[in-house]
Nucleic acid binder design. Structure first.
Lengths: 361, 361
DNA sequence: TTGTAGGCGTTATCAG
DNA sequence: CTGATAACGCCTACAA
């Protein structure tokens, strides 16, 4: 059925060894022979079989990539960064969407092992996967981004969620708000806890109490943000400002406010976590804690390539990238709109990289 | 390094044949032997090597998927439909993002062939790829969605772009607009031409002239929509309504209108192509030609599975799914908001499926 | 009920 | 300068 190197060899009147060497430039071949081989390759539309190559060489030139939500622009931006770096280095990427589902995650991890990917890049769900521990223990190249997996001491690229969230909430408070609500993401996910921690610290920093009624679980999805904002509005003493800890929930929050005709920012100030390209067309324009999404992907992919090539030492490495508060009118602040002055969200900022050994979480 | 079936066999004190049969349930094995094998598998964390399996069986249980823009929610929704169907049938999906770049497209097509994917699902760029013609000619399972590739007579799942666009523009005209602009996508892409054709037909249908100044090329991206809307506003005699032929451009259009403080829909009516989850939080709410994104993915994946299993005959198959005009306030119309009454964009509509043989484009 | 051996398509080693 | 051959890990006739 499929044309193999033997077919090409026969067609060119040489051995398969010679064809292989011509194709890989791995030893000198007389020019006329070379030409005959290339002609045969052309004529037969020959394409090497990576499966056989990989079986022989034990390297598939493929990276497995696990994300938790392909509809989230945060992840798609990040995927671009990863793909760009990986492709440049000659690797293909196998993208898998876990949908925050640990079962799917496990299934995919197994599948990737079976397919002999050379390395894995993942945004883990909140559930501990023994496979991950095991892979890390074996020294298999594996880098986590966005979140740390519970328990595994692995390489990672993260952002400083605590101080990002703390800065955002402080900003809200400095604008005179005292009843500040927070809509958090999925339970058990590191980013959720850290952003909530930032909220708590900011409240404490300004001597404000944390009212449990103002702390809502939005499950990281649009519907969750919508639902929890509704609930907040139904409180006897509703908040005057809300901090939403991921972009989909922020959209839900805005939707609920609009459905109830609550004016932003006059009747409710809103600050979200995660910026995205389309934030510019929302009215009022959203104040957000922006993450360097593309750079997270780039950085994680580079770290992974280092590991594949055996660089980076035996200690787990961690890189923490900074977030950036992008103030727009949705928080009542409405200073000058800096974002309009830049080509992209991050311009060319000096990247602050903290490189510290990983301790248990 | 890696544990193989032979390691397991040795550990269990049997032959590799027996291990293989136990794992695949392909012949009866005495219970005690079976248990010893399974114990060994467990102990050694054995996982079969798909590469070797595929090399032997000539089937990789993997589908290659090419999309043109991973940041476009239209495609990500579609990917979910594809993945759900493919995974259920035991296939993994290898997702590749061509970024509308024919070179990348070709590179990925080659890569997928080398990796021996069993089938390919693609949204082609506007450039003819001889590889595609060749694959189709060989009977290789390949289904295109969203667009047809120039020249290749292949299976496809599409929507009725012409009548969708025509309906949208007619809707605009019926609301009294006579100067209606259109912002179109990338040149050479089928969807662009068809949606433009729908615009032209609607104008003709109502006896309106097509002013070339009102026909703008927005290149299918946010920035393009922004730029062209600006240009339209700068005309001596600007339009009173605009039809944007893809979702990212629509966002750009809205951004430009807001930047210039042009009120929608009073000063400018807007209708877009493609609905998306977040349209609900935009103010004013967007009137759009909605596509059944998830179903497109499902349908395409099913068609592909049919092909893999040799079903479907030798004729190219084409399925055309209907679009649906979702009227919201951005077109001045503001009838009752139907979308709020439904769980999802498409509820459970009777799917209209036209199944006609493909003729040359 | 279990085992032996050959071959899938490549490449590396060794030989000429 | 070129070729024969073994081996990667698995499956499956065929054999016992």
């Amino acid at each position: 059925m499929r044309t193999t190197i033997v077919d090409v060899a026969r067609d060119a009147g040489v051995s398969s060894t010679t064809v292989s060497h011509v194709l890989n430039g791995t030893r000198h071949v007389a020019e006329p022979t070379r030409q005959r081989v290339l002609a045969a390759v052309e004529r037969l539309h020959y394409e090497v079989n990576s499966l056989a190559q990989s079986l022989k060489s034990d390297r598939s030139q493929t990276i497995g990539l696990l994300i938790t939500d392909i509809s989230n622009p945060f992840f798609t931006a990040l995927v671009r960064g990863i793909e760009d770096v990986a492709n440049d280095a000659g690797y293909s990427v196998m993208l898998c969407n876990t949908d925050e589902n640990p079962d799917k995650e496990l299934t995919y991890l197994r599948m990737l092992r079976r397919k002999s990917v050379d390395a894995i890049l993942m945004a883990p769900t909140g559930v501990r996967q023994p496979v991950v521990d095991q892979l890390v223990g074996l020294g298999f190249p594996l880098v986590c981004f966005d979140r740390l997996p519970p328990g595994a001491a692995c390489d990672s690229v993260l952002v400083d969620n605590v101080s990002g969230a703390q800065g955002a909430v402080s900003h809200i408070i400095r604008h005179g708000h005292r009843r500040v609500a927070v809509v958090t993401g999925l339970l058990g996910v590191g980013t959720t806890d850290e952003r909530l921690e930032g909220y708590i610290r900011a409240m404490a920093e300004h001597g404000l109490p944390v009212d449990p009624e103002l702390v809502r679980r939005g499950n990281s999805c649009l519907a969750g943000g919508y639902r929890e904002m509704q609930a907040l509005l139904d409180l006897p003493d509703p908040p005057t400002a809300v901090f939403s800890t991921n972009n989909l929930m922020t959209l839900g929050v805005l939707g609920a406010l609009q459905a109830r005709s609550v004016h932003v920012p006059d009747a409710m100030a809103v600050v979200g976590f995660d910026d995205f390209e389309w934030a510019a067309v929302l009215r009022p324009r959203l104040t957000v804690v922006a993450q360097p999404t593309y750079e997270i992907g780039e950085t994680a992919a580079r770290m992974l390539l280092d590991r594949i090539e055996g660089r980076g030492g035996s200690e787990p490495r961690r890189i923490v990238l900074p977030t950036r508060l992008t103030v727009r009118e949705s928080c009542g602040a409405a200073g000058p709109d800096h974002s309009a002055e830049r080509e992209d969200v991050f311009g060319r900022p000096p990247m602050h990289v903290a490189d510290v050994p990983l301790s248990a979480r």
